[in-house]
C-alpha cells in the first residue's frame, strides 16, 4: 500500500510537471496559429452562402462532413440507448 502511494505520487508529479510546462509554453490567448482560412470565410460568407451567422455557414456548408460525423454519433447513441433500455423494459 505504501509502495503504491509512492508510485502514485511520483506519477502525479510527472503529470503535474508536464502540465505546468505545457501551460508555460501555451499559445497566446486569441491568436490562432494559422489564420489563412479565417479571413476568406469572414469576407465571403455573406456572398457565398447568404447567411449572417458565420458559424452556421461553416458547420453546414464549408465543413459539412464534420456535421455528418456529429449526426452519426448522435444517431448511434440514440440507437444504442433505445436498444438497451427496450430490452430492460420487458
Amino acid at each position: 500500500m505504501n509502495q503504491r502511494n509512492i508510485l502514485a505520487a511520483a506519477f502525479l508529479t510527472i503529470v503535474a510537471v508536464f502540465l505546468m510546462f505545457s501551460a508555460l509554453f501555451m499559445h497566446p490567448f486569441g491568436e490562432p496559429t494559422s489564420q489563412a482560412m479565417d479571413q476568406y470565410i469572414i469576407d465571403n460568407t455573406v456572398g457565398e452562402t447568404g447567411a449572417n451567422n458565420g458559424v452556421t455557414s461553416v458547420v453546414f456548408d464549408y465543413r459539412g462532413f464534420d456535421t455528418l460525423g456529429e449526426a452519426t454519433v448522435l444517431f448511434t447513441a440514440v440507437a444504442s440507448v433505445v436498444m438497451l433500455f427496450r430490452r430492460l423494459k420487458k
Binding site: 452562402t49 447568404g50 447567411a51 449572417n52 451567422n53 458559424v55 455557414s57 458547420v59
Partner: peptide
C-alpha cells in the same frame, strides 16, 4: 433563425 443569429439545429 439558425443562419442569422447564434444557434442552429443542434
Amino acid at each position: 433563425h439558425g443562419h442569422l443569429t447564434p444557434g442552429g439545429g443542434f
